[in-house]
C-alpha cells in the first residue's frame, strides 16, 4: 500500500507525496521536489535545514527525539512544540497520512 505524506510548503500550498518506507522523511521530501528542504548535511543530524512542523495528531507516532536533534532545533528561531528534523524520522507504513509543514527559513 502506498504511503502518502501531505506537505504544506512556505507558500501555504499543500502537496501529497508518495513516500518510500525505509527512507527518512527528509529524503522523501527532497526527492518529492520540496525544494525548501535543503538538508545541507545530508541527514547526519549536523544542521537544521530540514526542519518541519508535525501535525499535532501525528506527534505520538513520531520516534523519540535525540539530544542532538533537540539541541539543533534550538538553533532555529522558529522552533515550536511540534518541531522535528525530518532527517530523523524514518518513514514506515504506519505514517500513511502524515501531515507536515515546512518551517520558515532562519
Amino acid at each position: 500500500m502506498p504511503i502518502t505524506v501531505s506537505v504544506t510548503t512556505r507558500d501555504g500550498r499543500t502537496k501529497d507525496l508518495t513516500a518510500i518506507a525505509g527512507r527518512s522523511l527528509m529524503e522523501n521530501l527532497r526527492s518529492g521536489g520540496i525544494e525548501e528542504i535543503l538538508a545541507l548535511c545530508g541527514g547526519c543530524c549536523s544542521c537544521a535545514t530540514c526542519h518541519v512542523y508535525v501535525d499535532d495528531q501525528w506527534l505520538t507516532a513520531m520516534p523519540p527525539m535525540s539530544e542532538d536533534e533537540d539541541d539543533l532545533l534550538d538553533t532555529s528561531g522558529a522552533r515550536e512544540a511540534n518541531s522535528r528534523l525530518s532527517c530523523q524520522i524514518p518513514v514506515t507504513p504506519e505514517l500513511h497520512g502524515l501531515a507536515v509543514t515546512v518551517a520558515p527559513e532562519d
Binding site: S46, D68, D74
Partner: peptide, 8 residues
C-alpha cells in the same frame, strides 16, 4: 552538539 549549537 550542544556546544556546537550554543557556541554559534
Amino acid at each position: 552538539t550542544r556546544d556546537y549549537v550554543q557556541g554559534r
